[in-house]
């Protein structure tokens, strides 16, 4: 493995300069020591736009070493455009080995999903976070939300969820569903579907969260309690799908709806492309496995 960045990039290993990495690394260590607390950090301008993963990219750049194997997913898939772009960025600036296999990766950067394959001790999951503040849509001012976190005053959040129940009979939040970490901080899991929330609870992997535009880093150490907020009479529930994956027949996984035509034709397939491919390689066949595969992006 090439220890230095390929010469033609003209940039430091993993793009960031060492001073920036030290600053981010200090923030990561505080984040690990204070699970769920959003550590402010001096987020840098990155060569991709804000909102496209600059926080995750900075965390990954600060963590990554020459022996790592990197996987990047967006919407659960390795071949979505932003995932391809970020994977190429690190292949180019850090010269690290990349993979699409969840089991082979040491560092996984993700947007909007947690892989279906359970993560293991020693793996690091880096989340790209657009809005780190769970109270932001209830209280837009940072000065106020900081006070609420300091006081562990999460009444607003419970009122919001309860209003949902009063109005709809159930909680109407489907993604970025708030969690309580290690019995103290309420945290945004980033816009993963709430389906993935239970995977965060006592995961053997280290979970790091980077929000570039909002300049925050937070973390969930391995084997840490992550509890989705709910009420005794309205316990937390995850999404369920009526059918198995049309390609690999998996059940109990998160599915993407793929539109086949403009006459209402639909198929449901695994959002986690590596998981789906591994199952098909192992001989599992869904009802449309032999029909036309959904086309990739042209």
């Amino acid at each position: 493995m090439n220890a230095q960045a390929p010469a033609e990039t003209g940039y430091n290993f993993a793009y960031l300069d060492e001073q920036t990495k030290r600053m981010i690394r200090r923030a990561i260590l505080k984040a690990v020591a204070i699970p769920g607390y959003q550590v402010p950090f001096a987020s840098r301008e990155m060569p991709m736009p804000y909102g496209w993963g600059t926080g995750g990219v900075q965390v990954t750049a600060a963590v990554l070493g020459p022996n790592d194997v990197l996987k990047v997913i967006d919407q659960g898939s390795d071949d979505t455009t932003n995932a391809v772009s970020i994977r190429k960025f690190f292949a180019k600036t850090a010269g690290v080995e990349t993979t699409t296999r969840t089991t082979e990766a040491t560092v996984i950067q993700t947007r909007h999903r947690i892989p279906e394959t359970p993560l293991t001790d020693g793996q690091i999951l880096v989340y790209q976070v657009p809005i780190p503040e769970p109270l932001r849509f209830l209280e837009p001012r940072e000065t106020e939300t900081r006070k609420l976190h300091a006081l562990a005053d999460y009444g607003l959040m419970h009122v919001k969820l309860y209003e949902d129940i009063a109005r709809h009979g159930h909680i109407a939040t489907t993604y970025d569903y708030p969690v309580e970490v290690a019995g103290r901080y309420v945290m945004n899991p980033s816009p993963t579907p709430k389906f993935d929330n239970p995977k965060m609870h006592r995961s053997p992997a280290l979970q790091l969260f980077g929000a570039g535009r909002e300049k925050r880093i937070y973390a969930v150490p391995p084997y840490t309690d992550v509890v989705s907020l709910d009420f005794e009479d309205h316990p937390f529930e995850v999404q369920r799908f009526e059918k198995p994956c049309a390609l690999c027949a998996a059940t109990g996984v998160y599915l993407d709806e793929v539109v086949l035509d403009d006459r209402g034709g639909r198929m449901f397939v695994c959002s986690d492309s590596d998981f789906c491919a591994s199952r098909r390689d192992a001989g599992h066949r869904g009802e449309m496995a032999n029909a036309a595969q959904p086309a990739g992006q042209s």
């Binding site: 060569p47 991709m48 919407q75 898939s77 979505t80 455009t81 932003n82 391809v84 772009s85 960025f89 180019k92 993407d256 709806e257 793929v258 539109v259 086949l260 035509d261 403009d262 959904p294 086309a295 990739g296 992006q297 042209s298």
Partner: peptide, 18 residues
């Protein structure tokens, strides 16, 4: 949608450029 009739057509874009 990940895919849909008519496909995803990236065309000329700055998106995903470094």
């Amino acid at each position: 949608y990940k895919d849909l009739p008519g496909g995803q057509v990236l065309g000329p874009t700055f998106d995903y450029t470094h």
